[in-house]
């Protein structure tokens, strides 16, 4: 009993230790950056600011930037020791998401390219 009290620094396991990295400033900075990224996405898609074939790439880059802003400023996913498990889980989730979306697009594009031309009456 005495050993465990020493181990947890007089704090029984599971008791709240109030500390938060969140504050008003971080939310406001996050909101500003997210609005900038959103306006950027709409401008890129609606104007010819970017070379036309590069627009999807620009949109994807801006979307990832905004997701990063949300993760850091709204979800407070930092590099602290409390966040190690969260980051690892996120990395695994991102891996699965890329596997599902990228894999589906790759396979279906391949099937589509190898498909025989269909007579018009079979489409109906």
């Amino acid at each position: 009993m005495d050993g465990s009290a020493r181990l947890f620094g007089d704090r029984p396991p599971g008791v709240e230790q109030q500390e938060s990295t969140a504050n008003f400033l971080s939310y406001t900075v996050g909101l500003g950056l997210a609005i900038l990224a959103t306006i950027g996405s709409f401008v890129v898609s609606q104007t010819d600011l970017l070379w036309a074939p590069g627009i999807p790439v620009g949109l994807v880059v801006l979307a990832f930037a905004q997701i990063g802003v949300h993760l850091v400023f709204f979800l407070h996913l930092g590099s602290g020791p409390d966040n190690t498990n969260n980051i690892l889980a996120l990395a695994f989730g991102v891996f699965i998401v890329f596997l599902v979306i990228g894999g589906s697009c790759w396979i279906i594009a391949n099937l589509h390219a190898n498909m025989m031309a269909m007579p018009a009456q079979m489409l109906h």
């Binding site: 181990l7 396991p13 008791v15 709240e16 230790q17 020791p81 409390d82």
Partner: peptide, 10 residues
């Protein structure tokens, strides 16, 4: 968060 220092807070 790496298993040392006892369980993490609830």
């Amino acid at each position: 968060g790496r298993g040392g220092g006892g369980p993490a807070p609830t």
